[in-house]
Computed example of a mutant assay.
Amino acid sequence: MPSPEVVPRHSSSPALAAAGFLDFTEAWLGNRRLSAHTRDAYRRDVAGWLNWCGSRDLDPLRATFVDVNAYARQLEATLGARSGRPLTPTTVARRLSALSSWYEFLVRLRAVDANPVAAADRPRVDRDHSATIGLTADEVDALVAAAEADTGPTALRHRATITLLADLGLRVGELISLDLTDLGTERGHRSIRFVGKGGKVRRRALTPGTGYALDAYLAARAAAQGLSVPELTGPLLVTTTGARLDRNAVFRLVRRLARAAGIQAWAMLSPHSLRHAFATTARAEGVSLEDVQDAMGHADPRTTRRYDRDRHNLDRDPAYVIWSARARRRG
């Protein structure tokens, strides 16, 4: 790991210190348990701030909350590469949160006296709202049916990918990081192991439908290579060239199949839409909030509730349960 001591306490030239800041960022990331995707995102967040400082000849070690506020207002006016719309408050808040963590590390190392992000005016984020476009249970069924009806040499892989997303509610980063060695059994259940947020190793049960889809995909993949399934190695989901499937391919797959399924909002969907649908459907089917929270790997139950798109449905109002119980007691 690079030594954070390469960062001077009060650098006089941002350009001269740039290499040191990059090394420091790697030291900061190495000190935290993060997924590869999160590390990449944090690198981009810090690099964006350093580039902004460099364009203004501002030493990041001398930046104040006023500078962070100016940067935040520019982020709020920045158009997203995918959406073409201004960045959401959640995105801006996440970028500032990463930057705050970066500065907190600097403070602990006594490279700066205080964290300038701590006093900055961060955008207000509604914890009860998510910008992700969700799916109803019927729409998920239609998406899975479209995957099952798909044709071509990659159709079995597509089916396995969609069923893993739909039945387990995995994050796309968790999905594409899966290796064949992550498949296993536990107490009579077929299971899959993966690294969730925070670098925590987690296990989930494979449903019969997901297991069937994976078995069919792996059998075809092994036959194409003249191998038996146990002889396969490497990533669980691979491209036709044998490379690990990437997140962009999964995004394209979800939208293509959603369009084929006749889902109106297909162009705005993402793999995360299936994760939201997982939470909503599980709660609608009576799964406890705690069990859904554990399955999704959420540290805070409020996050799980935000994923539950049907939480405000009056059909689920506890008043009905209370009234029904009272009616039964009265006979």
Rank of each mutant, 00 (worst) to 15 (best):
P4M: 05
P4I: 05
P4T: 06
H10P: 00
S11Q: 10
P14I: 06
P14Q: 09
A15M: 02
A17L: 05
A17F: 02
G20L: 01
G20I: 05
L22C: 07
D23I: 00
T25V: 09
G30D: 11
T38F: 01
R39Y: 02
R39M: 11
D45R: 07
V46F: 08
R56L: 13
D57A: 15
L58P: 09
D67A: 12
V68R: 04
N69L: 05
N69W: 08
Y71K: 03
Y71T: 04
A77M: 05
L79M: 00
A81S: 02
A81V: 15
S83I: 14
G84R: 05
G84D: 08
P86C: 11
R95D: 10
L96K: 09
L99K: 04
L99W: 06
S101I: 03
W102Q: 09
R108L: 07
P116S: 13
A118H: 10
A131T: 11
L135D: 00
T136H: 09
L143W: 08
A145C: 09
A147R: 11
E148F: 00
T151P: 07
G152M: 01
T154D: 10
A166W: 06
D167W: 02
G169K: 05
L170Q: 03
R171A: 03
V172F: 09
D179H: 13
T181L: 09
G184S: 10
G184V: 09
S191Q: 10
I192A: 09
G196K: 05
G196C: 03
K197C: 00
G199S: 11
K200P: 03
G211A: 14
L218M: 13
L218W: 03
A220M: 12
A222V: 01
A223P: 02
A224D: 14
Q225S: 14
L227W: 08
S228L: 11
L232G: 01
V238D: 03
T239Q: 01
T241W: 00
A243H: 08
N248L: 13
A249M: 03
V250R: 02
F251Y: 10
R252G: 01
V254I: 15
R255N: 07
R255E: 07
L257E: 01
L257Q: 01
A258V: 02
A261W: 11
G262I: 06
I263T: 06
A267P: 05
L269N: 00
L269D: 01
S270T: 13
P271E: 05
P271I: 03
S273T: 08
L274G: 06
A279I: 04
T281D: 07
V287I: 13
S288M: 05
L289P: 04
D291G: 00
D291V: 14
D291W: 12
V292T: 12
V292I: 15
G297A: 10
A299T: 12
Y307F: 06
R309C: 00
D310H: 13
L314V: 11
R316M: 10
R316P: 00
D317W: 10
D317Q: 10
W323C: 02
A325L: 13
R328E: 14
R328S: 11
G331V: 07
